[in-house]
Design a protein around this nucleic acid. Structure first.
Lengths: 277, 277
DNA sequence: GCGACTTTGTGCCTGCGTTCACAAATGGAT
DNA sequence: ATCCATTTGTGAACGCAGGCACAAAGTCGC
């Protein structure tokens, strides 16, 4: 998509760069004030180089999907430039991301699709299946239970929970709904490793607590509340209202800019990106 | 953890400060948050205070929800410390985020809930409603059409589209489904400003293109593909598979850590990346 | 009216993630 | 066998975001 960012930096950046910054050895106590949500993890300690940036992990998942598509098309080899375009990222970033996984490219040639798929799956822990439990079988819960994208990617939905007596035993997407009170037993029996919270906001924290005490250590939260969990539990949050509001912000910003530009002299020297339309 | 980070700063290297370095504070032109579509943009332009970091915008939406809850409980005033705890962030970060909105706090007291709600809504552009169109009325589309969280927050769903003839005219969540071929007319009539893509992957790009040519400038994409759009269109992506895979990564990492710790012998020197399997 | 106390707003520092740019590695051509 | 074209892998620079700590600013009690 275009965006010719050709000569990005106009003018040989003066900016002498105060290189002097001989910053001290740096104590590096690595506090980690926590701050769950997001990477949480941290827990510095002897974390050594193992650290793959959270953002990179998310992109690896995207690369993986693109690669799967390529494999289906019978493409067996690809260069970073092309792969990065398909994934919508900068090629240098792609190469660096892949370097976290290992060195599986061939200079002058590119990467072998099958190898990359294998290695990324290994890093993402997709070599084994992760049983998923969905809690809260409302609109969204229904949709997720029926969502084909999960099982096909190694995330079989093995349990559904709710409190509504009318739902008990009713199969949704092939799985009968269990009562939330049985969550501990059922999760243990079916070896659930990921819990998905789709309950109304007021119930979310309680449900989360029960999942945690049932041994679930990874939670995907769709409820618009901030879940409090122990340090060893990983929470990812998908908040539709927030997504919409961020879009709303951009609508508003855009409207403002148009108002400004429409009025008067446009600032010169703008590097493209004018937006007007 | 603990790690009392008491009086940390031990004599910071007294940088002589080469006066020249008077580099402006630089507001930073914040454009297009969502990854791709780089558009590095040139360094700060004269972009008044309108530059709010994307991450801060997302958090403002969270604060807003918390504040709404407080208002319902009849709480009229709150300090940053308490509000930040409820939102799950550091209090300094909260104050900084709010400072992007303006100075509406009272030192020694805190913030008035109603004022904050009003100002955040203003910044996020929530003072006017944003009509939403959902394309692809499958499991997820159904769920979204019925999702009560949207209308109640200023995002009325006003149109539904699909290609399935059996769905035409069928009301879902009170709105009859229209054919995708009518998208331009319907979107114009109902002044749709946000499009939500819930189609199968192969159809997503085409649907996106049609939304764009229908004048929609903000898109929320649930399809697992990277949408290509013009620079003036804002796309946010929610990718369930990626979320799951990130969780999977953490499951794997955790398992490794336990294995390593349990074993003891940690490979020395190796470039980290232990993981082997 | 004044001093003690509380809480905001923000300058500064630190660290992370992104990008640049180039050396190293490899295949193919001569 | 050597050279050239190509593409990877990564050291280093850069810029943004996060967090601390403190001055400013306001409240409350006396």
């Amino acid at each position: 998509m275009a965006v010719q960012r050709g000569r990005g930096r106009a003018v040989p950046s003066n900016r002498p760069t105060p290189a002097d910054a001989v910053t001290e050895p740096m104590p590096a106590v690595r506090a980690n004030g926590n701050g769950h949500s997001g990477s949480g993890s941290g827990t510095g300690e002897r974390d050594r180089a193992r650290a793959i940036p959270e953002a990179a992990v998310a992109r690896l998942a995207v690369y993986l999907r693109v690669l799967s598509g390529l494999a289906e098309q019978g493409i067996s080899s690809i260069a970073s430039e092309e792969l990065s375009a398909a994934a919508g990222v900068n090629s240098a970033k792609l190469r660096k991301d892949l370097s976290y996984v290992g060195s599986y490219g061939t200079r002058g040639v590119g990467y072998e699709v099958s190898v990359l798929i294998e290695e990324i799956e290994r890093i993402l822990g997709l070599t084994r299946k992760h049983a998923v439990a969905v809690v809260g079988i409302g609109n969204l819960g229904h949709a997720l239970a029926n969502y084909g994208g999960f099982p096909s990617r190694g995330f079989p939905v093995v349990a559904l929970f709710d409190v509504d007596d009318d739902l008990m035993g009713v199969p949704v997407g092939g799985i009968p709904v269990d009562h939330i009170d049985d969550i501990t037993r059922v999760c243990a029996d079916r070896e659930v490793s990921i819990g998905v919270v789709c309950t109304p906001p007021p119930a979310a924290q309680a449900v989360c607590d029960r999942l945690v005490s049932a041994g679930v250590r990874c939670i995907l939260n769709f409820a618009p509340v901030v879940l409090q969990v122990p340090d060893d539990v990983e929470v990812r949050k998908v908040d539709l209202a927030v997504e919409m509001q961020v879009l709303s912000f951009h609508v508003a910003r855009r409207a403002d800019e148009i108002a400004v530009n429409g009025n008067g002299a446009e600032v010169p020297g703008v590097d493209g990106m004018v937006i007007r339309r």
